[in-house]
Design a protein around this nucleic acid. Structure first.
Lengths: 263, 263
DNA sequence: AAGTGGTCTAGACCACTTT
DNA sequence: AAGTGGTCTAGACCACTTC
């Protein structure tokens, strides 16, 4: 099912001079490598190459798209910079996956104040289907009242309950997700989403606040009411900037902190 | 500091071991463009080109370093990706500066929940010299007891006190910094550091926690005691990963949030 | 030995800015 | 018109991995 891309309208390019400026209005150009990038992105989005798999070599892509290897290289360079693919010298270029040590801590920012980061235990508190509240629906870009999966869980670090999270997932995508499947799954939840539901998270936005633990939160985290908690509201996106998860977390930050790098 | 920046041109001695290009495999090698990047970085660090200034063109740098323009380009690409320089087509490549709208919100992550971000008013509470406590000294990579400048300030957004900050700066670098100068200065403090003290921040690490306001903090922020505050501990670095600021902030997050992008 | 990504070069042309 | 960064090409060679 190799889709031969339609002709790329290249403004530049040496040799065959296709570059035209004489047209009255040239509203949009994009560089050739951006068009190539979009084509590769489409291959990722459509599932032509799945997470963990090898994509065609630069030379092969260059031949397929009828451009030079250097142009393919620049396209892949950007995809690699965005963590969508991973280059491995001598082996090839792979679709990024959450089933890697490398990706584990990209979305888990809570670190122990001393010592090495550890993988949390996962305690599922509740899983149910319900109709999306207005605020969640807006964030997920679905209609208010559409079916969503609601998950409540507690993550335990070294025996201490530390993170309480509530997740809302679009029911249309995550149909069939059960508490049992979640409970038995080892590793990051994004790995499960990727493997079982074909939905690969690529980026997220977060809003952080300091709040006081209410009665229910205090009980689940085994602290007293009004303990300060770090509130983290996350919206995660898959290819095409499509939102696929709303996650509200409350982090206990005694002995842990949320790390961030500014550059 | 004792090197002569203007004679980077001769390839013979530059880089100490970076001499030949066609070199056989040696224990340590770095790609040419990384060596060029290091040389340009040295020009930035040594003050040969100051923030806001134009650096030599790619062609000129290529001639100076005796490499191709493409190699210089790749070196500058990385520097631009790290926000150390800014490329402007048709004009040239400029040293990054904090005196730009563009940079203003790179280190100010607190955003209003609704509406556009606004520039805060700056209220200096206290400025004094003192001896570095052990924890601050460790973070600043100086000796405990060395002179540091201590600054306490409150930032006011739209009339509401929102951020309380305490800064520790190495006395050796920020000699002569006074409350008056701070109070009268408009714009981001990093702009002042850059212009008046020749110290340009390039990156920072932060640790975030949720805490309860103590008596003094509550009073300065005009909230009741035990109000949850977002605690932000920042260490800022200049060229060469040298720490030059420790900043401890307490953010009021009612009506504001700390935004973060994960990718 | 063959295939992959990584580096480096040289040259061409384009888009943008200033002179 | 001249200079700058931006794009694109073609070819060479290197380093790493696998066969």
């Amino acid at each position: 099912m190799s889709s031969i891309p339609s002709h790329l309208a290249s403004p530049g390019g040496s040799g065959a001079g296709a570059g035209n400026l004489s047209g009255a209005s040239s509203p949009t150009f994009s560089p050739l490598y951006q068009q190539i990038k979009a084509l590769i992105l489409h291959g990722l989005q459509s599932g032509e190459w799945k997470p963990g798999e090898l994509i065609p070599s630069e030379i092969e892509l260059a031949a397929r798209f009828k451009v030079s290897q250097g142009t393919v290289r620049k396209a892949i360079d950007e995809l690699a910079a965005e963590n969508l693919v991973v280059r491995r010298q001598g082996k090839g270029t792979f679709v990024a996956t959450h089933h890697e040590e490398r990706a584990h801590f990209r979305f888990l920012r809570l670190m122990p104040d001393v010592g090495e980061p550890h993988n949390p235990e996962n305690h599922i508190v509740e899983v149910k289907r319900l109709r999306a509240p207005a605020d969640v629906a807006r964030l997920l870009d679905i209609k208010s009242g559409d079916s969503v999966i609601f998950i409540k869980r507690v993550q335990v670090f070294e025996g201490a309950p530390t993170i309480l999270e509530e997740l809302w997932l679009p029911g249309a995508i995550f149909k069939g997700l059960t508490a049992e499947r979640l409970a038995e799954y080892k590793g990051p939840m994004y790995g499960l989403f990727e493997t079982e539901f074909g939905t690969h998270m690529i980026r997220a936005t977060e809003k952080l606040r300091a709040v006081s633990a209410d009665q229910a939160q205090a009980q689940l985290l085994n602290v007293s009411i009004d303990t300060p908690l770090l509130s983290v509201e996350r919206v995660s996106f898959t290819y095409g900037d499509k939102p696929v998860e709303v996650r509200r977390g409350w982090y206990l930050t005694e002995g842990h902190h949320y790390r961030n790098e500014l550059s």
